[in-house]
Design a protein around this nucleic acid. Structure first.
Lengths: 245, 245
DNA sequence: CGCGGATGCGTACAGTGTGCGCTAGGCTCG
DNA sequence: CGAGCCTAGCGCACACTGTACGCATCCGCG
């Protein structure tokens, strides 16, 4: 018998059933990971910190997850589950349905800004069960609009790509903002001199900057997003009209 | 005098001017970092590995760069410098000019697939000198189309968001493909049974999959990208027509 | 010739993902 | 009821990360 012994070898001392919380499980791991990411951001997620939150050792997680990358794939799919895709009937038309889905996806990503840093790392996002469900619903939506198989997924992907492109930039901005610990207004004030100096030789940018004015930044982002989304949906509608005629 | 001495204290032994390569400089650091990233991917970039490539110690880099995040900001801006934005005259119209810029941006990101993982982390991409130059050119382009200040940047951002959304997904896919060490066809064959089983309860997805057929995957991606880009540009054109009328 | 500022580097520290082999509890089979 | 196995969990160890600190060296100036 090796040298290590419990301090006092007695039944009364031996700690039994110390886990009052339910045992480790994939679900518990994934949902705790999402919470940790939401609260403390991507770089705060380590196997050790996640283990601690679950009253477990770091390496215990590896009984349920092959490695950290796999954990992240699971987390991404979990979050995609929050996406809401209405049926044509609920939405009252394919266009409103697509618009609602787009707004929902943007909201999901902004609710979990770390998604921005992670979306570019995950290869086969498309195979997760939640992602597949939502994709199926989106395809049904655009099919009802009149897009035929072979074109329907192109239509869906056009909208998704736009939303992801916008949301990733926004999320990256909001993440650095959060890390800075300042309010958005403080941040803007701090950056203003730098940007204005950078506009020195860029008259068009200065003009845009001036035209945008000093409204509520969040409202500006919302409206900018809506503007582009309308253009994308217009483009799809044009396509439908011309191929139907 | 402390204990450490050169092995043989003599002028003839002392190594002098051992650096034949030019001294460390920001430019050299950034461009070597881009090369390293292109050749070995994002997770191969460490301060130590980059230092070694430059015949320098890891910590020497910190004389030129505040930290790794700043290095990455610089690298991103450097790569954005590869973007080509034609003038209206060169392109023969705003629409072709925007399309060419979009194709160029996609090509840049696919040439440097690690950009996908990094775009979501970099906050103020917009302040880099190269990014600002390209943005200014893009604004000039859409202004020539008839977009007024306050709307021009929305038009530009709509296109950019679409391109970034598409390219990020593609780049993430291509990165995992590269890491797998297989050819794309091998990869597709390996994944096929999984996807087909996943399509079990997803008839629309199966229909799309079938309609897409088994063409050259790269060509399919190119055409898919072109399809969405046409829709986005259509949407912008519609907007121009209606606001002009 | 001397000196001061810039540049590079060696060491060190805290923290990372994860492979390996042990332990102990719950299950099944005799 | 007992024996054995299966598995979840854990402690340790390893190679590696970003980077703070202080010393050594060099270049250009007076």
């Amino acid at each position: 018998m090796p040298a290590s012994q419990p301090p006092v070898p007695s039944v009364w001392v031996r700690q039994r059933r110390q886990r009052e919380r339910p045992a480790l499980s994939l679900d518990r791991i994934v949902s705790e990971a999402v919470q940790l990411l939401d609260e403390e951001g991507l770089e705060a997620l380590s196997m050790r910190s996640l283990g601690t939150r679950l009253d477990a050792g770091a390496t215990s997680l590896y009984r349920h997850v092959a490695n950290k990358d796999e954990l992240i794939e699971l987390v991404v799919d979990e979050v995609y589950g929050e996406l809401r895709v209405p049926s044509v009937e609920e939405a009252g038309g394919w266009r409103d349905g697509l618009a609602a889905s787009a707004h929902s996806l943007r909201a999901v990503i902004l609710r979990h800004p770390w998604m921005a840093s992670v979306l570019g790392q995950v290869g086969l996002t498309n195979l997760g069960p939640n992602v597949m469900r939502r994709s199926e619903d989106l395809l049904a939506l655009v099919h009802s609009a009149g897009f035929v198989p072979g074109e329907a997924d192109r239509a869906v992907n056009t909208v998704l790509a736009y939303v992801i492109g916008v949301a990733i930039s926004e999320a990256a901005y909001l993440s650095t903002l959060a890390r800075s610990g300042r309010t958005e207004q403080e941040w803007i004030d701090a950056v203003r001199p730098i940007t204005e100096q950078a506009f020195e030789n860029h008259p068009w940018m200065r003009a845009e900057y001036a035209a945008k004015g000093s409204g509520d930044p969040e409202r500006v982002r919302d409206e900018d997003f809506g503007y582009g989304l309308d253009r994308v949906l217009d483009g799809l509608q044009t396509r439908l009209a011309s191929s139907a005629g």
